[in-house]
Amino acid sequence: MIYRTPFPRDVFAELDRLQREMREAFDITPSIRGAARGGFPAMNVGGTPRSVEIYAFAPGVDPSAIEVQIEKGVLTIAGERKVEQPAQDAKAAVHIDERFAGRFRRVVTLPDDIDANAVEARYRDGVLHISIQRKQAAQPRRISIQ
């Protein structure tokens, strides 16, 4: 008896390929600290030859209450977000409740070449921007030929 697949092509192989392509397209590299995607604050990380740039999207958080720490090459951003609630009365109702409230902590592993003493953090429009310089020795240098 000849087995004939009911599908014109191997669907499972197709699904596998699709999943792999999705992963590549979104560049999700699994980290030992877990897939933190979806946590608060949302984070974007980027870099230049001179610095590492971290953006933490933490709207409505008192900047003085955010704790930023670098220890052993790991950056930690922690704090608490208090979400305002309007005065409760008999007719009050909550229709949508999606915004994050409560304590948060997020951790990012930093590259080896950063200078933990040259860090700048700014809070603007609800975004905490942390800029960390790379060590001088690690920066690309042009070598002149004699």
């Binding site: 309007p86 949508i96 609800g126």
Partner: peptide, 22 residues
């Protein structure tokens, strides 16, 4: 963007998180 929507007798209050928007 995530939102919170509350309603009371006088009206509706909406909060939306739009970090990074000037």
């Amino acid at each position: 963007p995530p939102v919170d929507v509350f309603e009371d007798a006088a009206g509706i209050t909406l909060y939306a998180d739009l970090p990074g928007v000037p």
